[in-house]
Simulated scan of single mutants.
Amino acid sequence: MNKLTLLGNITPQRFLREYWHKKPLLIRQAIPGFKPLLTREQLAELATHDDVESRLISHFGAHWEMRSGPFTELPPWEKKGWTMLVQGVNLHHDAADALMQQFRFIPDARLDDLMISYATDTGGVGPHFDSYDVFLLQAHGQRRWRISAQKDLSLIEGMPLKILKNFHVEQEFILEPGDMLYLPPHFAHDGIAVGECMTYSVGFRAPSYQEIGESFLQFMADSIELPGRYADPDLSPSRHPAELGNAMLEHVAGEISKIRFTRDDITIFLGEYLSEPKPNVFFESPTRSLSLKRFAQAAARQGVSLSRKTRMLYRGKYVFINGESFTVKREDKAPLTILANERRLEGKLVSTVSSDVLETLCTWHEDGWLKLGQE
């Protein structure tokens, strides 16, 4: 069991047993000597893109304001009290993606994205709580974190942000570059910039059961088969024309109760649901299209790797990628499992895959889901 500096030199097993979903963990120098991966100007440029989710939050005087990007103009860098939040930076930047990979001791099905928060002096988003686990890595400057395990999570009404009405500070820390704070879901916290600062937030997916249930019903709509049509050959004259009759209710209820779903249905649904990219994610096809033969030759030399934006999962005989699923043969399972876990497949292994898998890899390359080598 390897210890991770990232977790304060404790093992992932101990972290998950003692802290995950349970209590905060302050890790001094989780990444010693950490430097920002992007400058503030590069982050601001990213926030001008349509396919990047960004927000601008200001607290000037007693007034809170939030705007959604893309942004063509920001407040002056020297003006206090504002914050720029840029989501999914790992989808657009190699080094940010590499940082995310360090958190894969948590399953990919739960790992969400890397958000970068840039704040000028006194900037923040107010005392709040998240519905998911989060690691807060200080990248530049200092941020003062105040946290609380309070059960009162009521919010101030009429605000553009979800700000806690009654925030009671229990602990306080100042984080320096390389320091990291883990917080479990629903743990109240407030981060305030001490001078200009950047904080990297690694968040996790925690969909509500309501959202999962609604999505599952939509998924099942494509596979439901209820043959026949409603009929009532034994209908009696109606004494109350506007009343729904018992016979009709029971007949329809009986037909609907024939709908069944299996563990395979749940597996396929969950794999497609959790690998589905967010709506603002777009893939870019390669500038030059390759024939299957040319692709096979290049892949055998260079290997292949998943695009930063690709989400790939598997379970048993099923493979899921970017919201799609397919069944794999036993001999094809090993290389695709390696590709999903390592996010790369060496050329010598590409040379061993079946013609079906090779054709699939070629299609993924054409769609921008897969890259040759490290292109």
Results as ranks from 00 to 15, higher is better:
L114R: 02
P107I: 13
D97R: 15
N90G: 06
E157M: 05
E65T: 08
T122S: 14
L111G: 06
A139N: 06
I156D: 11
R67I: 01
G81K: 00
S131N: 15
M100S: 05
W82R: 00
H63M: 14
I163T: 03
H63E: 14
D152E: 02
T120I: 03
R110C: 12
P160Q: 01
N90L: 04
G69E: 00
K165F: 11
T120M: 05
P70W: 00
S131E: 15
D130V: 00
I147H: 07
Q101E: 14
Q142S: 13
G141F: 04
Q142I: 06
H93E: 10
G124C: 13
P107E: 07
S148F: 02
D113Y: 03
Y118N: 13
I116Y: 00
K80L: 14
G126P: 06
T122G: 12
G141C: 03
L114W: 01
R143P: 14
S68F: 12
G126C: 07
W145A: 12
W77Q: 14
P76S: 15
E157T: 10
L136P: 06
P70M: 00
T72K: 04
E157W: 00
G88H: 13
P76H: 09
A62E: 13
T122V: 13
G158V: 06
D152K: 05
S117N: 03
T120G: 04
R67M: 01
P76Q: 14
G69D: 00
N90A: 07
R104M: 14
L74V: 00
K162E: 12
L136Q: 04
S117L: 00
R104C: 12
E65F: 11
R143M: 10
Q150F: 01
M66K: 11
L161E: 02
G141L: 08
T83N: 12
A139H: 01
A62M: 09
L137E: 01
M84S: 12
N166K: 10
I156G: 05
L137P: 02
M159A: 10
E78I: 09
D130A: 03
R146G: 03
Q138G: 08
H93G: 05
L164H: 02
S154E: 10
W82Q: 00
N90K: 06
G88R: 07
A98R: 09
A98W: 01
I106S: 03
